[in-house]
């Protein structure tokens, strides 16, 4: 056959070979179908790089939970656990512990009213648990003052108020 007919054929075959070569280098070896769905739609939903699962598992945990705080701050946790505020995690107000006390060395002590108002600003909402919580109108109840000046956030019991 004539050269001008074959030349485009060789050229296109070379391009295909090049694409396959580049693909074998660029696409990770663990890329493929990793699913086991009962409906068999594994290509549609489970076609991925297997290592991506481990990448997400390695993500850093930052919120450690009340038990972690209790290891050192036993008294504070005990005081808190005897009050109505026992349902609140320490880290909700103090921020994530991450690797405290190494990193960060200290956690924030947030005395802002906004933190308390998240639950205790009066919203008359029937059909929501919000309406059952003790609530104040922030514009009338000692505006400008820190709630923690009078109320103990670890134990907010009004009878125990100093």
């Amino acid at each position: 056959m004539k050269n001008h007919v074959l030349r485009p054929l060789w050229a296109s075959l070379a391009i295909v070979a090049l694409v396959l070569l580049v693909r074998s280098v660029v696409v990770p070896k663990d890329f493929g179908i990793h699913g086991n769905r009962p409906d068999g739609k594994n290509f549609t939903f489970t076609f991925h790089r297997l290592g991506a699962i481990d990448d997400w598992k390695k993500f850093k945990v930052k919120y450690r939970g009340k038990q972690y705080c209790e290891e050192c701050h036993e008294e504070k946790v005990a005081e808190n656990m005897s009050s109505k505020h026992r349902i609140i995690q320490c880290e909700n107000c103090h921020g994530p512990a991450i690797d405290h006390p190494d990193n960060p060395e200290t956690l924030a002590i947030d005395r802002s009213r906004d933190l308390c108002l998240r639950c205790h600003a009066d919203l008359p909402y029937p059909g929501s648990h919000r309406g059952d919580l003790p609530a104040i109108d922030p514009e009338e109840h000692n505006p400008g003052e820190a709630c923690a000046d009078c109320h103990n956030p670890h134990n907010p019991n009004l009878e125990d108020m100093e």
Binding site: N92, R118, C119, L123, S128, H129
Partner: peptide
């Protein structure tokens, strides 16, 4: 949803 109070924590 009946338990949510909208605290956003």
């Amino acid at each position: 949803t009946t338990k949510c109070v909208g605290c956003g924590l």
